[in-house]
């Protein structure tokens, strides 16, 4: 693939994988990721940031930051995966390339705890309000434990066996004949 071959001469990128004819993925190093994205946008026509998200690989102690770019002329998608360690995780912001990226980064900081220094509105609440636990989309966040801790079990409504209930309350006189 031309883009990949040319970029690999300048940047640390590897593991090109063709998922479909119109969708490729490759890995980029943390240091070179933003430069690779800038080149893809400015030089190779990948002008549309489709999405930006994180996949948590807890067992490998890694986050996989996944940037998906689209080229409207070739109708081709390029997924750039950046592996970073899960502790004190920081990544360079891309809001200067796409203003809409600030929203993605705001959400990722809230849901995964990845910091993007300089990204506008990074510390404002996105979907959560006053959240103090570990970021909830991390795989080590136990939703069941959180729910048991936060909410108390409510006693259910009083229930009856319908047959017995009808016998005792609705047709007390006839019940003996049943």
């Amino acid at each position: 693939m031309t883009e990949f071959n040319e970029l690999s001469r300048q940047f640390q990128i590897s593991d090109l994988k063709e998922q479909r004819a119109d969708l490729h993925f490759f890995h980029a190093s943390k240091e070179h990721a933003v430069a690779v994205l800038t080149s893809l946008k400015e030089k190779y026509g990948y002008t549309h940031l489709v999405f930006f998200t994180v996949v948590d690989h807890l067992e490998k102690n890694e986050f996989h930051l996944t940037y998906m770019l689209h080229n409207y002329e070739k109708h081709h998608d390029m997924g750039v995966v950046v592996k970073i360690a899960r502790e004190n995780v920081q990544m360079e912001s891309i809001h200067h390339l796409w203003p809409a990226a600030a929203t993605y980064q705001q959400e990722i900081r809230e849901m995964y705890g990845v910091e993007f220094p300089g990204s506008p509105g990074l510390y404002e609440n996105f979907a959560l309000e006053g959240w103090e636990d570990i970021p909830p989309m991390r795989r080590d966040f136990d939703t069941k434990e959180y729910s048991d801790k936060t909410y108390y079990p409510r006693p259910g409504r009083e229930s009856h066996d319908p047959r017995e209930y009808m016998k005792e309350n609705l047709y007390p006189g006839e019940a003996e004949t049943w």
Partner: peptide, 17 residues
């Protein structure tokens, strides 16, 4: 493996990764 699919809904590009 991983993949991304998209479709044109009424509001624009809808996609699943």
């Amino acid at each position: 493996g991983h993949t991304y699919k998209r479709a044109e809904c009424t509001r624009g590009e809808y996609g699943f990764y």
